[in-house]
Design a binder for these strands. Sequence first.
DNA 1: CCAGACGTTGTT
DNA 2: GTCTGG
DNA 3: CCAGACGTTGTT
DNA 4: GTCTGG
Length: 223
Amino acid sequence: MCGRFTLTVSADDLKDAVGLEIVPSEYQPRYNIAPTQPVAVVRSFPPKELEMMRWGLVPSWAKDPSIGNRLINARAETLTEKPAFRSAFAKRRCLILMDGFFEWKRGEGKGARSQPYWFTPGDGKVAAFAGLYELWFHKEDEPLVSCTIITTEANDVVRPVHDRMPVILPRERWSDWLEGSSPDQLLALLRPANLSLEAVPVSPAVNSPAVDRPELIQPIAGL
DNA sequence: CCAGACGTTGTT
DNA sequence: GTCTGG
DNA sequence: CCAGACGTTGTT
DNA sequence: GTCTGG
């Protein structure tokens, strides 16, 4: 995990939530955000800014941006060792904005379907994954800017569904993550979420990355 | 030395 | 760019 | 994460 | 089965 999430608020509400402007024409509410798609990100510099980035990290040394299709998550446990993430962890940390994420509980036996769940902080507010970003300079003037979501072990709410989850930073830790400098203090932030999460069983319609509508986060009966 | 990878997930 | 493997 | 493709040649 | 694309 995490391979799918939501950010369903309006551009105005997003601005109110984080205190930063976003280009309205680039943003729209989403109920099924998949890898390779644009996601709303706060990065600390230069300067602190809210912008849309491609989900899937493309390191500066990449010959081809397709490597980003695979670097959608970074394990917190090995962040400092992996060549693909080391420099981003040191210098290019970000907040990936969301208001819920999906995890799939695998069915027993072969051929069994996985049941998707939507996990949400449930207070209607914008929350944030801990992330890393990179700039990839090709031949155009503007670099391709991309990001990855940091994962850790599941907390008590998520564990029945899955053993990993994205790192969710409480609001009072946002600036610590963006502006921190000591690697030890930064790593200490990458813990399973302590905040309350609501687990909502949802329709397998979310399985298709092409489907994006409000019904995807409605509870389904019988579970 | 050069070449080639650089990642996570889940499944067996 | 930097590390690992041959 | 899941869904869907998995290929080349030559022609428009 | 495995890779690519969204």
